[in-house]
Amino acid sequence: MDDIKIGEILLPGDEETQERQEENVRAKFWPTLKKAIRQIPFSRDLVASFYCATDRETPLRVRGILLAALGYFVLPLDAIPDMFAIIGFTDDIAVLTTAIALISGHIKERHYLAADRMLADASPAQNAA
C-alpha cells in the first residue's frame, strides 16, 4: 500500500461516483464478507458501516467515505490480494478501520442492531441446526 494512501482511497467523490460505488458495494459486499468474516476482527462494525453507508439519512460525505472503504473491501484486486488468508485482508482492515474512525459518530444504534441481526442469522450454530 506504499503507492496508495488511505486518504486517497477514502475520498468521498461526487454524487454520481457514490451511486456507482453503492451499486458495486451492494452487489459484492455480502459474498466478500462471507469469505472474510472469520479473518476480520470487527465484523460487527463492518456490517454496521454497510448499513450506515446505504442509509439515506446518513450525510452524503459520510456515505461517500464509507462507500469508498467498502468499495475497496469488495475489490477483487487490491494492494495485498485477499486470497493470502489473514495477510490478504490487512490492507482492507487498515482502510476500513480508518474510515470507521473518521465517521464513527454517524454509525447509529439502528445500524448496529441490523448488523447484530444479520450476524446472528449468519452464525455457524444457527446454520448447523
Rank of each mutant, 00 (worst) to 15 (best):
M1A: 14
D3W: 10
D3L: 14
I4A: 07
I4G: 05
I6M: 02
L10F: 03
L10G: 00
L11T: 12
P12A: 01
R26I: 15
K28H: 13
P31A: 13
K34L: 13
I37R: 09
I40W: 06
F42K: 11
R44H: 09
D45A: 13
D45Q: 11
V47R: 04
V47M: 04
A48W: 05
S49H: 04
F50C: 06
Y51P: 02
T54K: 03
T58I: 00
L60D: 07
G64Y: 08
L66P: 05
A69H: 04
G71P: 10
Y72D: 02
F73W: 00
L75P: 00
L75D: 15
P76H: 04
G88F: 04
T90A: 05
D91V: 07
D91A: 11
D92T: 05
I93K: 12
L96C: 11
T97A: 09
T97Y: 06
A99M: 00
A101G: 07
L102P: 00
G105L: 07
H111T: 08
L113D: 12
L113T: 10
A115D: 06
R117E: 11
D121C: 06
D121M: 09
A122K: 08
S123Q: 01
P124Q: 01
A125K: 15
Q126M: 11
A129N: 12
